Amino acid sequence: MYQPTDLKKGTVCQIDGKPYRVIEYGQKVMGRGGSIVNVKLKNLLDGSVIPKTFKGQDKIEPAEVASKTVQYLYHDGDIFCFMDPESFEQFELSNDVVDEAKDYLKEGCELNLQVFDGRVINVELPKNLYLEVTYTEDVVKGDTTSSVLKDATLETGLVIKVPAFIKQGDIVSVDTATGEYRERKK
């Protein structure tokens, strides 16, 4: 069982038999040592977001979520095809399940799926991914300060802001939580 203060961002818990992920966390300390924890929870089955308040003595049930490593193969419209690297079994997931992860999926990459009650509920991306820049504007000569940002299209189709010195063909690290540029691969 979780205490309310265990519910950090990203924690998966179970409320009324449904899995939820904490997406926002806030704690208020009250007089005489009590505290209230305010969280926003994302339902991992239907994607809805609800606010919830817990008191210090509340008990929260952890969700029985299993993790499964898969390889991304391709997508066709709103269907994404994956393969189990051990059994070579292929299966498809809808756009609803893949959600925002679709912007980071590169053919052949390995990632984890979260499974709840025999059903895939979430595509878990690594914190950082290296992707190739397929298009970006050339920089104006003399305007190469690192504070100038420009758009860059990555191999997955995602467009992010990068420093002016990044050019087409560079491999850049992207933070999958925020979609922001981190560094150029050396």
Rank of each mutant, 00 (worst) to 15 (best):
K141A: 10
E137L: 04
K141G: 08
E132W: 04
V123H: 02
Y135E: 13
A152L: 01
I160L: 05
K167G: 06
E124V: 15
L154H: 02
N122H: 13
K141M: 11
I160D: 00
I166F: 02
G142I: 08
Y135S: 09
K141I: 10
I121R: 08
Y135K: 12
G157W: 05
V140R: 15
V140S: 14
V162E: 04
L131P: 03
D138S: 07
G169D: 10
L129S: 03
K161F: 02
K161V: 00
L158E: 06
D138T: 01
T153L: 01
A164S: 15
V133Q: 03
S147R: 13
I160R: 00
K161N: 10
I160G: 01
K167Y: 01
E137D: 13
K127D: 12
G169F: 08
E124K: 13
K127H: 10
N122V: 02
E124W: 02
L129Q: 11
V139R: 00
T136P: 12
D151S: 03
L125K: 07
T145D: 12
E155A: 08
Y130T: 14
E137M: 05
R119T: 13
E155Q: 15
A164N: 11
L131G: 02
V133K: 01
A164T: 05
T144G: 05
Y135D: 10
A152R: 00
S146W: 06
V159S: 07
V133H: 03
A164Q: 14
T156G: 02
A152V: 01
E132I: 09
K167A: 07
V120I: 15
D117I: 08
V140K: 14
G157C: 11
D170I: 06
L158Q: 07
L129P: 00
V140Q: 15
L129D: 01
V162K: 03
K167W: 00
P126K: 12
D151C: 00
I121M: 09
G142H: 11
T144A: 11
E137Q: 10
V159A: 04
V123I: 07
E155G: 08
K161W: 01
A164G: 09
Q168T: 14
T144W: 03
S146C: 06
K127P: 05
A152M: 04
V140A: 14
D117E: 15
S147Y: 09
V162N: 05
E132C: 08
Q168G: 06
F165A: 09
V133F: 04
L154T: 06
K127W: 06
V120A: 11
E137G: 04
V162G: 04
E124A: 12
L154M: 14
V133G: 03
T136D: 02
D143N: 12
A152G: 05
D151H: 00
F165S: 06
Q168F: 04
I121G: 09
L149G: 01
L158A: 06
V148C: 09
F116Q: 09
K127F: 09
G169P: 13
V120Q: 08
T144E: 12
T145C: 05
P126V: 13
R119W: 03
L149T: 08
G118K: 15
T144R: 09
T145W: 00
V159M: 12
V120F: 12
D143S: 06
N128P: 00
F165D: 10
T156K: 06
V162W: 01
L149M: 14
N128W: 09
P163V: 12
N122Y: 08
L149V: 05
T144Q: 10
